[in-house]
């Protein structure tokens, strides 16, 4: 990509983490964004798409814990572990959606909500909360009861949406960590 001017362009960070399975799917959508993107200078919020999907304060406090601002070993490993965690959670969501196991879906929503919230991935977190609520046959706010059919319908779209949001923010994060083959 057009980031030859990056100060953090060291080869050490360019290890493949094997999470590019789904990445190409929405690749084209944001492609031009990245094309005219200037160096973010270590500020993740300057990466297009970051502002509405990442909560700066929350993510920033994790970045603060990095020993080395160039390597970002700690935050990077947490974020990449989260990628794996999210992918496997989505797989479980898909299979439980097939099984119509609302309870498990709610639990999965809760689980991913916790970690995405901790990382400050606000969009994903909000969607996970919806999944949690729908799984309990409640509306998105968790207030009113809905029927099982409604819940399953909403779950299907919301899980799809959550995946999309996740992949969007995943791209932003990978860009931040200079890992975007």
């Amino acid at each position: 990509m057009a980031r030859a001017d990056s100060v953090k362009d060291d080869a050490g960070d360019r290890s493949d983490h094997g999470h590019d399975r789904d990445r190409d799917r929405d690749h084209d959508r944001h492609h031009h964004d990245h094309e005219d993107h200037e160096d973010h200078g270590g500020d993740i919020m300057k990466i297009p798409g970051a502002k509405d999907s990442i909560d700066e304060a929350t993510f920033e406090q994790i970045l603060e814990m990095d020993d080395d601002e160039d390597e970002r070993e700690f935050s990077k490993s947490i974020v990449y572990d989260f990628f794996a965690q999210a992918e496997s959670t989505f797989e479980k969501m898909d299979s439980n959606l097939e099984k119509k196991d609302l309870k498990t879906l709610s639990e999965l929503g809760h689980f991913l909500k916790g970690s995405s919230a901790t990382l400050g991935l606000s969009k994903v977190k909000d969607s996970c909360e919806k999944i949690q609520n729908y799984g309990q046959k409640k509306d998105d706010k968790g207030e009113k009861d809905i029927t099982e059919e409604e819940a399953l319908k909403k779950l299907e779209t919301t899980i799809k949406q959550t995946k999309q949001e996740f992949h969007d923010v995943e791209k932003v994060l990978r860009k931040f960590y200079n890992d975007e083959q």
């Binding site: 994790i62 814990m65 700690f74 947490i78 572990d81 989260f82 965690q85 916790g114 970690s115 901790t118």
Partner: peptide
């Protein structure tokens, strides 16, 4: 904490 992400970040903060 059952969630590894929260656990790691929580631990990190506590260490700090």
């Amino acid at each position: 904490e059952d969630d590894p992400t929260c656990r790691r970040i929580g631990s990190k903060f506590l260490y700090a």
